[in-house]
Structure formats: C-alpha cells, structure tokens
C-alpha cells in the first residue's frame, strides 16, 4: 500500500486561518468556510483510510481513536440514537476568546458522513468559549436533497444527444431550449441536477420535472435547497459532489447572469472552469444558457472559449 502523506500543524494554525478568513470574508462567512473546510478534511481522512461503518451505533469505536489522534480536542460520545448523536468535546483548540469550534464541527460532520455514506450535519449547541463546561455537538442526519430519482420514458425517443464530458453554452434570451434538452435527458434516465435562478416549484410545474433535485440561487435562505449566489465555493462544492456521485449526469446551470451580477465575471468564469473540469472527468454534461445581450462581447467570447457552443 502506498504510504499516505500527512503533515502536522500547531493548533494555533486554525486560529490564524480563521483570522485571515474573517478579514477577507467577514465573521459569518469565515465560520461557514471553516465548517465546510472541516467537512472536506474529515471526509478525506476517512476516505484515505478506506473506513466505513454500517450504522451510527457502530462508529464510536472508529471515531474516538481517529479524533484523539488529530489533536483537535478530547472527545466523548454522550448518546447515540438512530439518526442522531450527541458528542462532548473538551479542551478544544478552537474554543477560545468567544470563537466557536467551526472546523471541529465540520470535521466531525465529514467523518460521520463519509463513514456512513449519508449526509450528517453538526450543530454546536454549547461551546466552552461561551462559558459552558464543554463543547456539545449535535450530529444529525439530513435527507440528501441532491439525490436524483431517475426514470426512463420508453415511449418517447430521446431528442438530443450531447457529447458526454463537455460543457455547453446556449445563447438564448429565454432558456427554453436549455430546459428542453434538460427535460429530455431527465425523462430518459439521466440523473439530473437543476441549478436555477427561478423558483424551483414553478420550474417543476412548468416542465413537469419529477425526481430532479434543485438548487435555487437566491438570497432567501429559508429553503433547504436555497444557495446564496455570492457563495460560489458552496455552489461548486454541491455541483462537484453531485457530479462525482452521479457520473454521466446532466447539470443545468440557469442564472449565469445573476451569478455574474453578484460575483463579477471573473469569479463566475473560474467557477465554470472548475465545473467544466469535473464534467470532463465524470463524462457528464453541463448546459449553461445565457442571454448574450447581458454580457460584454469580450466576456461572451471568454465563455465560448471555455465551453462548447450549442
């Protein structure tokens, strides 16, 4: 077996990372980014070791030793029930001067999610930096809203056959053709993800999309499928996860104009480049409708260079 490389950092490194993120992104975004980074690290650790577990009740014997080794805190699993776990952390390296354990929370979420192959989120209900004796983490299962239900309509013939492994830009004022392609794929057994600026319930009704997961680009964060348009890192992470878990899938990214208005062109172009790479290696398809009148010619040319024109 090839040895797995690890590196060692002092506990204070997390505080420095938090400080940098707070300066650049603000406190709330910094917390979210630490949490998500923790999730990635936790998942990567479990993946590297090739560990898995069939139930929440089994994972105590796995989590405790790997957690203790990482040096984030002491850990004690307080209670374990189907779908939920309560964990106590003592001497957390993060919990100082009012700062909560965001990386640790994410790390725990990543470890549990990867071990069980389901999505688990973690809330820190008490933190020692806020005067409590210990940091108390609540780990709970979240139904994966990005799991597609596919069905193959045998009675109709598939209209479009786009080359897999490519991303397509479709220049149109109203994204009707893009949806037509997307619906055609969804109806014929392709796992599909719809990222849209339009309210998903309306899109579902209009296009009769059943079993297709949605991500709604909206400031309204009330819905579980809402995604902050300014948080392109989270959006990329969701698309990447979907594409990785559903090879050969199709992703519709409708609302590029909105993303550009929130983030600037360069940031969105970078997002598309990253997604394009994932699409290529997973033999999937991305379709991105755009209204050409909303973009300067140079920007449109850049998009056309990165993506195939349909």
């Amino acid at each position: 077996m090839r040895p797995l490389p690890f590196f060692v950092m002092p506990g204070i490194a997390l505080a420095h990372l938090r400080e940098e993120l707070e300066i650049v992104e603000g406190d709330q975004r910094a917390r979210l980014m630490l949490y998500r980074y923790g999730q990635r690290c936790g998942r990567a650790l479990v993946e590297s070791f090739g560990l898995s577990s069939s139930s929440l009740s089994e994972i105590r014997s796995i989590i405790e030793p790997i957690w203790m080794e990482a040096g984030l805190s002491r850990i004690k699993i307080d209670s374990l029930e189907e779908g939920e776990m309560v964990v106590n952390l003592e001497e957390s390296v993060e919990s100082k001067e009012g700062k909560t354990c965001d990386f640790g929370r994410g790390y725990l979420s990543g470890i549990v999610s990867q071990l069980l192959g389901k999505r688990y989120e973690v809330d820190e209900v008490e933190c020692s930096s806020q005067g409590y004796m210990t940091c108390v983490m609540q780990v709970y299962e979240v139904v994966d809203s990005l799991r597609p239900v596919t069905h193959d309509d045998q009675e109709t013939i598939r209209k479009y056959n786009l080359g897999s492994g490519y991303s397509y830009i479709i220049k149109e004022e109203v994204p009707d053709q893009a949806y037509d392609i997307f619906v055609d794929a969804a109806k014929h057994g392709t796992p599909c993800l719809c990222v849209t600026r339009e309210y998903p319930e309306k899109v579902k009704d209009r296009w009769e999309l059943k079993g297709v997961p949605f991500l709604w680009l909206s400031m309204d964060q009330e819905k579980p499928y809402s995604r902050d348009p300014a948080n392109v890192a989270l959006l990329y992470s969701d698309i990447k996860t979907f594409v990785t878990e559903n090879k050969g899938c199709m992703v519709l990214l409708s609302g590029l104009e909105y993303l550009i208005s929130q983030n600037g062109f360069q940031k969105v172009l970078k997002l598309l480049q990253h997604i394009n790479d994932r699409i290529a290696v997973t033999d999937s398809v991305l379709i991105a409708p755009i209204s050409p009148l909303t973009l300067p010619e140079g920007d449109l040319k850049m998009l056309e260079k990165e993506l195939r024109s349909f």
């Binding site: 040895p3 797995l4 690890f6 590196f7 060692v8 650790l45 030793p65 790997i66 203790m68 080794e69």
Partner: peptide, 16 residues
Amino acid sequence: ILGQKSHAALHEAYYR
C-alpha cells in the same frame, strides 16, 4: 505522542 495507536499513517506523521 498519543499512546493509543489507531491508524499508522496518521500516527507516523509525527515521527518525521
């Protein structure tokens, strides 16, 4: 170094 050995790769990182 932690005395409870769990996963060698993680543990051995500390020896480097």
